[in-house]
Structures are given as C-alpha cells and as structure tokens.
Design a protein around this nucleic acid. Sequence first.
DNA 1: CTGAAAGCGCTAACAT
DNA 2: ATGTTAGCGCTTTCAG
Lengths: 329, 329
Amino acid sequence: MATIYEVAALAGVSPATVSRVLNGAAVSPEKVRLVREAAEQLQFTPNRTARRLRNQSSELIALLIPDVENPFFTALARGVEDKAQAAGFSVVLCNTDDDPAKETRYLDIANSEDMAGVILAPASEDGDIRHVTDRGRPVVAVDRNTGLTIDSVMVDNRAAGVAATTALFDAGYERVACIAGPLGLEWTEERSLGWRQVVSKRGAGETIDRYLQHANYRVDGGRAAMAALLALDSPPDAVVTTNNLMGVGALQALSEAGITPPDFGVAVVGDLPFSTLHPDAITQVHLPARHLGTTAATMLLERIAGDDQPARTVVLRADVTRGAARPAR
Amino acid sequence: MATIYEVAALAGVSPATVSRVLNGAAVSPEKVRLVREAAEQLQFTPNRTARRLRNQSSELIALLIPDVENPFFTALARGVEDKAQAAGFSVVLCNTDDDPAKETRYLDIANSEDMAGVILAPASEDGDIRHVTDRGRPVVAVDRNTGLTIDSVMVDNRAAGVAATTALFDAGYERVACIAGPLGLEWTEERSLGWRQVVSKRGAGETIDRYLQHANYRVDGGRAAMAALLALDSPPDAVVTTNNLMGVGALQALSEAGITPPDFGVAVVGDLPFSTLHPDAITQVHLPARHLGTTAATMLLERIAGDDQPARTVVLRADVTRGAARPAR
DNA sequence: CTGAAAGCGCTAACAT
DNA sequence: ATGTTAGCGCTTTCAG
C-alpha cells in the first residue's frame, strides 16, 4: 500500500498537501494535478485505519439485527443500506441472534471501531446501549423499544394486530385464533393484544384463551402452534399470526392437514416472503420493513451530522391486503 | 474511552506492561492483577483502530454477496459467521448487487480497512480481485468462479441441473422446459446445460430451444418466463428452474393460472425458501448453502493463519428431494 | 520482567 | 497556499 508520503515524494509536495487534495482543501490547481497523477500512478488508496485513528470517527454504520435469515430484517437492512450508501457510509451487518450477550459484544465493537453510529433492533429492553450513547455515538432503535429515550422508529403493533383480526371477521370467519410469540416480547404482545381487543368484541368470548397460542417466533413454532389449534375440541376457523415466520409455519401445518385458505382464514402480521400462494388467499398486514430502515438511517445520519434535538419516535403504519371472504358452507 | 496510558497510570506500571497483559506476554502475576483491576475500574476497551494501525491487520472478514435478500446467500452468510465467530473474527456483510463497480469498491475497502481476508461470490469473472490478493490478503471465491487461481468452494452445477431434470422425467413428465438465468452467467448456464443434456436423451428433441427460457434470475423473471411457457402452442408439462427465486416466480405463475403441482412438474435448483407447499409436491435440488459458507470460512481462516499451499477448489454436491409422480390423466 | 521510545498513516494546528 | 510537526492509541524493539 502506498502512503501519502510516497505520493508526496513523487509529486514533489509535502504530505500535508496530499492530504489536502484528498480532502478537498484549498490547493493550487497545479499541485492538485501533480498529486492526482502521482496517486494514480501509485494506485494510492488512503488508509482508513490511520484516518480513523486520527479523526476518531469513521464512515461505518453498525446495523444490529436478530436474524439475517429473516426477510423482514433483510428488507430493513436494504433500506438502511440504500440511505447509507448514498451518504457515503458503509453498513456493517451484525447478527445478534436475540442474544443480549452478542448484542453487547457488537456494541463494544461499534465503540472500539469508532463507528459513526448504530442502528439497533434490540434483543432486550435493557441492553448495554448506554456504553455507546455515553460516548456520544448516536444510536437509533428500530422495530423494538429500548428503555432509553433515544431516536426510534417503530410500527404500530397494536393497530397491526387489530387490522389482521378485523379483516378475518369481516371476511366472515367466526372463531379467530392467534399464534403469538413468546411472552415478554413487546412487539408480539402488542399484536396479540390487538387480536384480543377485536375478538373480545366480535368473537365468541368464552374461547379467547384457548385460542391464544404462544410459540417461539420461527417457522417451526408456528407450525406446532397451528397443529395444536387444529387438535382442539372446537377448533378455530381462522388464525392470526403475529409475525411472518410463524405465518409460514401455520400455513405449512394447514397444508399438511389438507386445508387450504380461504377454507381456513389466515392473516399474517408481516409479509409472507416468497409466497407461492394465490395472492388473495390470505390477509397480509404489510410491515414497512424497508421504510423502517430508510427512516432509521435518515435519522441516524442527521445525528451523525450533528443534529441534537430531543429524541424522536416515529411510528410507521402497516397497510393491509385483505384475503378472500370465507367460502359458504 | 480510557486508553492504556490511563490504565497504566492507575496501575502504576508502564503502558507497555498494560499492552503485555492484554496480549498475554510474560508479566509478573502481581502486575497482571494490578492492571486487570485498573482496566476493570476504567471500563477499558482496547482501541481496535490503533491496534490495527500498528499491526496492519484486523479480525474482520469481508463477505461480499450479490443480495442479502436472497435466502441462499443469507444461509451462506450464516455458515461463514458461525465459523468466523468461533475463531474470534467478525464478519462484515457487503451487498454487491452483482455490480462489478460496487464489488471493486468493497474490495478496496477491504484493503484500506486492513481486513484479514475476503470471501467473495464474484459479480463477474474479471473483477479487480488482484488488488486484494496482490497485497497478500487471502481471498476465497464461493459459489462462482473467478478468472484467478485462488481457493474456491463451488457446487457441481451441471450435476444439479441433471438431477433436477432427471427427477422430472423419472416422475413421468415428458415435456420438460427450463427457466434459466441470463446468458453469460456460468452458474446458471451450467445448470441449464445439465437440463439440456438430459432432455436431449429423454425428451422430445425438436422442442428443446422453445422450452428454454432466459430470465433475470429473480422472482419476477421466473414468473414471466413461466407465463411465456404456458402460452406456447404445445406447452411443457414440467419445468426446471435454475435457481430458487425463479422457482418461486414460476410457482406463482402456475398458481395464477390455476395449476398446482404435481399436475405440472416443478423442479427447482436451490431450496424453496419458506415454502408453504406440500413438501413433496415439487422436486428440490438442495444446494448446500450453509456448508458452502462454513467451508469457505474454514479455508480462509487457514490462509489467514499462514497456510500457503497451492490454491484448492472444493466442489460440494447438492442432494435431491424428489417430488411426487405425475398424476395419471 | 519492565520501561522508554519509535512508529504504523493520516490530519490539523501552527508557521511561513 | 504550503511545509513542518505533533499526536491519535497501540505494540514492539531495545536497553536495562
């Protein structure tokens, strides 16, 4: 790797001048040319490590998500990347696996790597985010809340749950169950509260609790929960899942039982990734994953640029694609 | 951020000793204790930037993939991450969008960030990989070939195409079409050559070319190509798609036309992500995505550790899950 | 075993 | 407008 000293020597100027040319400070056109030629000739690329050590900051944004294999988060990542790229920043994607320890580890790395900022889908509400914010490094929470008052971009989870459930009742289903994630995770609890809210008005009141299943929030969890629901004495005729992956699992279980929507109503909070079903067989509450990402990135970039207004919370709304009506029996 | 100077001062030793403690060099037990306590008290985290500038190397691995939203590549990424984590390395995921310019940009970054190595699913066969290898930084190619003789981990694409096509003929289909990616991409051409090879033996010879569709290799491409095939005078009764995403598109187009496998045979090279279809309705040639990642990471880590044997190429095999037989008419 | 000091490549005062 | 120089935080000779 050539250094600015070598470039300077070849161009017959001082290293400082080379640095100035690189950073667009005032230099005579003549020397600019000389430096550019020398840099070209030596295939010079500035050493980011040295620059960073000097500047105590980099053009790197850390994006911490629970799972790169979940399309919701990859879409979000795409949104972040688009905005970041355009502003000259690179994004470092980190998998936390929803493990607070891994999250902490990555936050420490963000610090010791002098990253410009962090976008975080928090694994828990009480992570070590202060380590980062205390050092003046901006952090934006996305999709999930933190205990701290920092910028955040959320989805109206309650409304999403309500919308999914309402769509099913409107389509003529009467016994609407819910497959929710584990207790204690705010996003899934909110969505299932939305379900409960609608069911308590429009459903057959006494069956509410039997119709609420908690599962791990992945495909296998959704599948198991759906199987359990189908095995009930008086099974539901429709189901809401509080995320995309459990939706896939539920549909798999239905398919294995020989049941096809809309014979059984299905509403998913989230987008069914790569679905090969007929588009309006089911109801989808589309979460604005990518938009979540672009919004978070925009806010973070503002903070990086020095904006220090009070913490903001943006709540994005999901929009619904309603599935077909329940077929007559 | 506390520095080793502050730790040293607090512990009453020299910065060099602090460094030694951190790096496990020989230091008297007494001072080790002193240093550890001081570090603890100051919440000291070593500055990676400074360390890297000094050492000219980091514990960062760059992973360049065309698309984070493609489950094949996220599975691969998981594989890389697992191995890397275990060895104390962090993985930086970079999206190239199959754009050689972006690829070059990221390779430059890998250089100027002093990354330990690069795992690359190349966007083209003649990228600027030399920039990196010339600097002695190890690079492992994965999933696709480069022009250079470097370590690589591949899939037997031809065999995958053969396996997919054979499964369809064996299941009783007679007019097997192929939806391939754009011309000029080796991986998809190889897979479609596998198809051609089988069809020329077992198929109705004269229709080969009409049954070969080229599409962009994403969902919409597969869908359009499938629609085109269905509109032919004598349409096929089965189709092979050369990747996962086009498989999804093809299934969508079939579903829109009211056709359900196995009434129409479908074989996909790659895994159908999050499929809600009945598991054996279609044939899948499972590409060992994760294994590709772990293998590449293992090879890269060996190189990083100093291994300098000649370049190796590992070819992994796909295994097939056969779909149902064609129903009698 | 330990400390002093140089230097990784770059940038930002400070001079000129 | 340009050159000189110090220093970002760390590791590693080199002395002792």
